[in-house]
Design a protein around this nucleic acid. Sequence first.
DNA 1: TCGAAAAATGACAACGTTGTCATATGCCGG
DNA 2: CCGGCATATGACAACGTTGTCATTTTTCGA
Lengths: 330, 330
Amino acid sequence: MPVTIRDVARQAGVSVKTVSRVINGDGPVREATRQRVQAVIEALHYRPNAVARSLVTRRTMALGLLIADVINPFFPEVVRGVEDAAKVAGYTVLLGNTDEDPVQEERYLALMQERQVDGLVLSGSRAEEEVLRQAADSGFWMALINRAVHHPRILSILVDNADATAQATSYLIQKGHRRIAYLLGPSRAEAARLRFEGYRRALREHGIPFRPAYVVQEIPRIEGGRKAMRTLLALPSPPTAVVAYNDLMAIGAIEAVQEAGGRVPDDVAVIGFDDILLAAYTIPPLTTVRVPKYEMGYKAAAALIDTIKIGRTSPRVVRFKGKIVVRGSA
Amino acid sequence: MPVTIRDVARQAGVSVKTVSRVINGDGPVREATRQRVQAVIEALHYRPNAVARSLVTRRTMALGLLIADVINPFFPEVVRGVEDAAKVAGYTVLLGNTDEDPVQEERYLALMQERQVDGLVLSGSRAEEEVLRQAADSGFWMALINRAVHHPRILSILVDNADATAQATSYLIQKGHRRIAYLLGPSRAEAARLRFEGYRRALREHGIPFRPAYVVQEIPRIEGGRKAMRTLLALPSPPTAVVAYNDLMAIGAIEAVQEAGGRVPDDVAVIGFDDILLAAYTIPPLTTVRVPKYEMGYKAAAALIDTIKIGRTSPRVVRFKGKIVVRGSA
DNA sequence: TCGAAAAATGACAACGTTGTCATATGCCGG
DNA sequence: CCGGCATATGACAACGTTGTCATTTTTCGA
């Protein structure tokens, strides 16, 4: 029922191959022929079938994009960056939410392979390194956002998690804080590990002893931050400042302080990470580390597409810088 | 280079058709054969090529999802709802951002048709009705969120925009407000028209004269709301309350009032629409109309998939109810 | 005006899978 | 141990496009 290239060919009195040439603008075609074919294409409202095309060219012009959860305010900007870069290069994006669940991530990875996407962007990846490596070995091109895996077919887009967190921590120390706690993120996340390292490094560099009781791990959401902060406030000598894995936890922490009758930043200073939209609107507005989310998404997709084109990763790691945004919470 | 069904067949000593039967679990296969084939599939890490499959079955098991902009906090929940419903039914989602631009929307519409998606969900659609109708005529199944188009292949998922806005307006009137302004959204959006109607209806029902000067149209973002509110504040007799097309404009309005040295809700009460995440965290927290965004996305995709399956829309319109969430701004 | 080279066009196979239909195999009752 | 029937399997075409290579047509110089 739908119009095929064959219909166009018949109607225009040429071979299908000639129609193909007109559509793709390759191979020589006499101008008169081209116009005749073009006219038929428009008359019949013919649209080439991308599925058939992909089967023979072995390219789908599609990118997979796996993120933890679109509703998490960190990801929409990443998604948009990926989408924009993809669009510029003529690629389409297949989206999947993995909920930071390695099982779901693996399932999607397999799905994307079946669907023959030309490359895959992962943000918030929690799969075993071995799984990613295996997919890459089987010929899959990947770009990881905020995760590093060394492999000839894997590209990493990173922020300086450790440095930025160290700076944030140092900022608090310079403000006179000595009892500084850390709200730890998901241990599976490489970014969580690195940020925590930055926190410890800053303490060490300023000669402040590390106190394990000042580190609380929770889910990286508002509720998690609230819960973690309650734990900290119950300590015999509670912290006067808190560095959080991300903004959501930081916001939860602020809420917990205020619930307990304390004031931010007077009683407890709070500093977040990511600079999500919400961060500018809390009470007080959140001091945080701005991460170039859109840019990272854009770069991930753009670099991935280049990589696919030339057939090798180059460069293999792209680093972005986080930047402290001082607002009211610290 | 990649493993095909042929490789599996050869290795297992059966025909490709038998392998196909094993994979899809259709047609009779002797248990012994099934196990042998299954073993080879696993040994070779064979993954069926979805592109080839789609070509012959004429179904891609993919849904297109066109939204205005993922970064706009209204859409992530919709996206997640669509994704979840799609996943349950074995569908994959192709995402596109249209930026409320009819040209981009049409371009994506064509792209999605080329890619042979089985159906399309549109949220924030701004294309000419004729364009949508034409796509539907050519056999395309669609679900529109917050837009109604009467066509046998088009499904509409709506909120009671007019009623909910009328309620919100009435709420302000009951609070004693008489000078109530309206921040109008994009005139291309059907939702904008309906909400505005609700505002006017409420005024009418309470015998409050409609004043054109109290209606300001701007882009539906924070900046737009700020700008619109500034205009209103410059009026000789500025409003004491404002109903906004959406939360972003409402937040902008709050900012403008505060910038001008006024207080919300004492000097100007503000009420929004959508209940985005941000709404709960502004100062003061925003009173607004909660729209079941996730549910609407889920329902859109689920109903669309049902529709595709049975080959006809049933029902053709699904209505959701908005609900006033009273917080601090009104 | 002719021949050779260049340009334009077309026939056919291939991409990897499933649908259709024919054939082979296994099973069961007598 | 055989016929008949159900079950299991396979051969081949088809999906709609592009790649390869052969063939036809045009162009142009001598």
